[in-house]
Amino acid sequence: MMTNDTQNPLLAVRDLRTYFHTFSGTVKAVNGVSFEIGEGEVMGLVGESGGGKSVVGFSVLGLIDEPGKIEGGEILLDGQDLVTAGEDRLREVRGREISMVFQDPMTSLNPLHTVGRQMDEVLRLHTKLDADARHQACVEMLESVGISQAAERLKAFPHQFSGGMRQRVVIAIALLARPRLIIADEPTTALDVTIQSQILKLMRQQIADKGASMILITHDLAVVSEMADHITVLYCGNVVERGKTRDLIETPSHPYTRGLIDSIPDTAHRHDRLMQIPGSVPDIRNLPKGCNFRDRCPRAQALCAQQEPVLTKQHATLWAACHYPLKPGETA
């Protein structure tokens, strides 16, 4: 079933607009993004730097600071809007219902507190457990993310852990209060490939065990294709394509998605040259009229300069915002 048809999605984001008002102009980092996630689903949010994918994640948690502002749209958690909710409600949501795993395990833990104290904080704020029960829960959680001698390690400080171990701690903290949604922003980008595969395996298993949903934000299509049920591709703050993972990877209909996939060097088939998307991402303060991607698009025509394309149904489970989408098997 396509996500759009999900009856009661856990999270529904509708027409989200997050702008940053800077001296040199308004940056429309997220400009009308909509998606839905059902219970137990993993959604990949993909795009290049500047696509707005991290800002979507921060917006959902209400973590947008000045000069940024959510200018419009709805973020519905169980049908309840988080955009209009007060800070008290957001505090309840953060860590309890939605938790976040950040990219850099070196900076997302407090270096001055022991790991145990940072884990305990989550439970202290969000549960009514007593100290012994909290300690027990922390030990169990740390063991379940693959850290041995957990009771001892709780007394250690973050610098006493390696990068992979620290990311395990961050994941343990994110899972502690049994949230229903985890937003993972480039969780393995800072890690080595053998450690990355350990962490991805761990996240997959933990999410399945606890029945949580996940938004996986990454620039790495290979990681997303191994983890996600469906994928949303962002470009310059807009959704350009979304659909089920295999459909989107194998027969993308938006030329940008096609270009992204073709620029990944493929170890199975070696071509002499990689397909490349010409040019670079336009200045987001000063986007061209019509389709944002048209300057880099091999299929662009006059219409693309006049009219902004909207998401429309394509083949299989795909939805794409393109005037001249690709048919299955067609190359850009």
Binding site: V193, T194, S197, L200
Partner: peptide, 24 residues
């Protein structure tokens, strides 16, 4: 192990999987 750990956009086939424990 390095080759089997590398994620790929292709669907997993009978990839040899050596998962390393621990760290360097």
């Amino acid at each position: 192990a390095l080759l089997s750990a590398a994620p790929s956009i292709k669907e997993k086939r009978d990839k040899e999987e050596i998962v390393l424990s621990g760290e360097v």
